[in-house]
């Protein structure tokens, strides 16, 4: 298999890439790791007229902490996230479970986020940690909260002339923990079910911030807002997490498919939510 014909623009700067996108219009697509886009082009599900390769742009490959945030550039590969010392909680926990080792060597975190695959892992992590997507267009840079960014399956609110140049994930200042528990049939498969959890504790040990999001059990990654609200202000406990798990199970509308029945997947949501939150709390208490 091979893609349909396209013009290739190899951009050297972000400005050049954005300019090429403006010129290409609707028929233009950015190419970073290409681990989703190239297969889609080979299957002729995607057929951009112009492909704008951003891999040669300097300065987009840093993953680092700055001003209370973890900043992830557009060319940071999943493998770089696995190897990074700057990550924390759910981000560090999810990275080794994205795709397989070879795909992680090429695919980028930002590309995966921008792709908005409804079964992608990263957007759940970004929901749980309350991250922002940084987009650059001809008018400059803007920051979009992940909740405003994700619009649906394979759809985001990114402007036609904008490039995702990075992610900004708030690094908790106090005690915190997080986990990404993913059930998959084999390495490299989509999640059957995955749960991202994130907890921050105040000085009294009560939960001061909570994040919970689900992968592969709804038409798009799902933030479980009512469970998050329930936990804030409470002391971590098995009972509390069991209650949160019920809300998570209620928020999941999985389908019967080759990966399992809907009823079973909902039960996995329940179990993984309890385990994930317990792991997050334990990590926070030890931090």
């Amino acid at each position: 298999m091979f893609p349909s014909r396209f013009d290739l623009v190899v951009a050297q700067t972000v400005a050049e890439a954005v300019e090429a996108k403006v010129d290409a219009g609707e028929g233009g697509r950015f190419l970073a790791g290409g681990q989703s886009l190239i297969p889609m082009m080979k299957m002729r599900v995607a057929f951009p007229e112009t492909l704008i390769d951003i891999n040669r742009i300097g300065g987009l490959d840093a993953i680092e902490r700055a001003n209370g945030h973890l900043r992830v550039g557009a060319l940071v590969r999943h493998a770089d996230v696995v190897a990074s010392d700057a990550t924390f909680g759910a981000v560090a926990s999810a990275a080794p479970w994205v795709a397989d080792p070879l795909v992680r060597n090429r695919g980028t975190m930002c590309g995966s986020v921008a792709h908005c695959d409804p079964e992608g892992d990263w957007n759940s992590v970004l929901f749980a940690t309350g991250a922002d997507v940084i987009a650059q267009g001809p008018g400059g840079e803007r920051s979009i909260s992940i909740a405003d960014f994700v619009d649906g399956a394979f759809t985001s609110t990114l402007g036609e002339e904008e490039l995702v140049v990075g992610l900004r994930i708030p690094v908790p200042s106090g005690r915190s923990g997080g986990a990404y528990l993913k059930l998959e049939r084999k390495i490299g498969d989509y999640a059957t079910v995955a749960v991202a959890s994130h907890l921050e504790l105040d000085d009294s040990g009560a939960i001061s911030a909570a994040g919970l999001a689900l992968t592969s059990v709804n038409p798009i990654n799902t933030k479980v807002g009512d469970a998050e609200a329930l936990m804030v202000g409470q002391q971590p406990s098995e009972e509390l997490f069991a209650e949160a798990a019920e809300l998570a199970a209620a928020a999941a509308e999985p389908r019967d498919d080759v990966r399992g029945t809907a009823a079973w997947k909902r039960q996995v949501v329940r179990t993984y939510t309890k385990r994930g939150l317990a792991a997050a709390a334990q990590q926070a208490e030890g931090s």
Binding site: Q35, I38, K42, L102
Partner: peptide, 26 residues
């Protein structure tokens, strides 16, 4: 030919990648 099996693995600057999912131009 769909980024699953790894039969097409090559080392690109020392890093293993699936060569069916990399453009020659890249």
């Amino acid at each position: 030919d769909t980024t699953s099996c790894g039969a097409c693995t090559v080392l690109m600057d020392g890093t293993p990648v699936k060569a069916c999912t990399v453009l020659a131009a890249q």
